[in-house]
Design a protein around this nucleic acid. Structure first.
Lengths: 201, 201
DNA sequence: GGAAGTGATGGGACTTGGTCTCATCAACCG
DNA sequence: CGGTTGATGAGACCAAGTCCCATCACTTCC
C-alpha cells in the first residue's frame, strides 16, 4: 500500500473501526490505526481533529441539511413541521453503505466514555443548529429550543430504528417524529392538565 | 501551605477556576493547578478523573436528587409534574457560595470545546437518569424520554436565569418549567395541528 | 511510649494524544 | 525541464493520564 493510494480518509475510518472492535477503543493507539491504513500518525491528525473524530465524520453535513430544510420550509409550516422536514432532509446521507458499519460504530461508542461524550456534543450541535434556524423563522426562543430538542430525540430514536431494517430513512424519521408528537400530546393532556388551559400558566 | 492542609479538593477547584480565568483552560497545565493549590499532579488526579472534571464536581448528586424526587412524587402526579419536582429537588445544592463562582465557571466552559463536551455529557446523564426514573413509574419509554428532555432544557434555562439574581432556585425552576410547558402547548396547538387530533398520526 | 497500620501525599518513570516543523515525494503546469 | 503545489513522512516536543513506590502525618494498639 503505497504512499499515494487514494481514499486515505476512508482507509483510516475503516482501520479505526476494525481495531476498535477487535481490541477496544482505549487499547488502540492512533499510530496503530495509521499503520493499518498504511499511513502515519501525522497524516491521521491531518484528517481528523482528534482520535474520537474518526467515528463522527460528516456530522456537520447533517447539521447543514437540517438548517437548510428548516430555512426552506413553507412559510406556513409550524415549527414542528419544519423540524420534521429537517429530519427528512438528512435521509440522503443514510446510505446502505453507512448502515453496514452502523451497529459496529454504535457498539464502540456505547463502550467508551470519551466517545459518548463526543456523541453528546454532536447532538447538542444539532439542537443548537435547529434552534437557531427556527429562531431565524421568527419562532420564539423557548419554543424553538423545545422543538429542536424534540427533533434531536426523534432523530436518535429514528436512527436506532433504521439501523436494523434499513430502507428509506425519511419514512422512518417521519414515523418516529409523529410518535414523538403523540407522546408530547399525551404529556400535556394528562389528567390535571387539560389541553387548552394549562394548570401552571 | 503544608502537605496536610485540609480541603485539598476545594483548593484545587478554586485554583483551577482562577487559573482558567486568568490564562485560559488550554494554557493551564494540571501541574500548575496543583502547584497553586500547594499540591502535586498526582494528588490532582486522585481527586478528579481528569482535567475537565474539576469544573463538574457534584453533578452526580444532582442526578440522584432528580431521580429521588421522581420516584417519590405522588402516585397521581403526571410525568411532567414529576419532572418539575425533580428540578425543584435540586434547589438545595444551589447555594449562594455556588452562585458566586457560577458566571466565572460558565464563561470558562463556554470558551472551550472539551468543556462544552463534558457539559453535554452531564446533561445527557441527567436526561437518562430522569427517563429511567419515569419509566420505573410506569411511564412509557418515549413519553419518559420527552419529559426528561424538557426537564433538562428547563434546568439549563433556569440555571442561567438564577445565576444573575440568586434567590430560591426552586421558585426559578418552577417558573421556567411552566414556561417550557407553555411553549410545548403552543407548539402542539399550532395552526394546522389542532390539539387532540394530530395531523401526522 | 513506642511499634505497627492507615490514608493521603510526593515523586518520578512511562505511555499516548496532540502539535509543530521540516524534509520528501508525486503530480501538475508552464 | 524546472518550479510549484499538496499530501505525506519523520521526529522532536509538550501535556494528559497511569502506575508504582517512598514518604509523612495521624491513629491504634500493645
Amino acid at each position: 500500500m503505497g504512499r499515494w493510494e487514494p481514499d486515505a480518509r476512508e482507509r483510516l475510518v475503516r482501520a479505526a473501526l476494525d481495531l476498535f472492535s477487535e481490541q477496544g477503543y482505549e487499547n488502540t493507539a492512533v499510530a496503530q490505526i495509521a499503520e493499518r491504513a498504511g499511513l502515519t500518525k501525522s497524516t491521521f491528525f491531518r484528517h481528523f481533529r482528534d482520535k474520537r473524530e474518526v467515528l463522527f465524520g460528516g456530522q456537520d453535513v447533517l447539521a447543514e441539511l437540517m438548517t437548510g430544510a428548516i430555512a426552506g420550509a413553507p412559510e406556513d409550516a409550524t415549527p414542528l413541521d419544519a423540524v420534521e422536514a429537517a429530519l427528512v432532509a438528512t435521509a440522503e446521507t443514510f446510505t446502505e453503505e453507512r448502515r453496514a458499519h452502523g451497529p459496529q460504530r454504535l457498539a464502540v461508542i456505547a463502550g467508551n466514555d470519551e466517545l459518548r461524550e463526543r456523541s453528546a456534543l454532536k447532538m447538542v450541535g444539532f439542537a443548537v443548529a435547529m434552534t437557531d434556524a427556527l429562531k431565524r423563522r421568527g419562532v420564539p426562543e423557548l419554543e424553538a429550543a423545545v422543538a429542536a430538542e424534540l427533533g434531536v430525540l426523534a432523530f436518535n430514536h429514528g436512527y436506532e430504528r433504521w439501523l436494523p431494517t434499513g430502507g428509506d430513512f425519511a419514512e422512518v424519521a417521519r414515523r418516529t417524529f409523529s410518535e414523538v408528537r403523540e407522546a408530547v400530546g399525551k404529556l400535556v393532556s394528562c389528567v390535571g392538565n387539560p389541553p387548552g388551559k394549562s394548570s401552571v400558566g
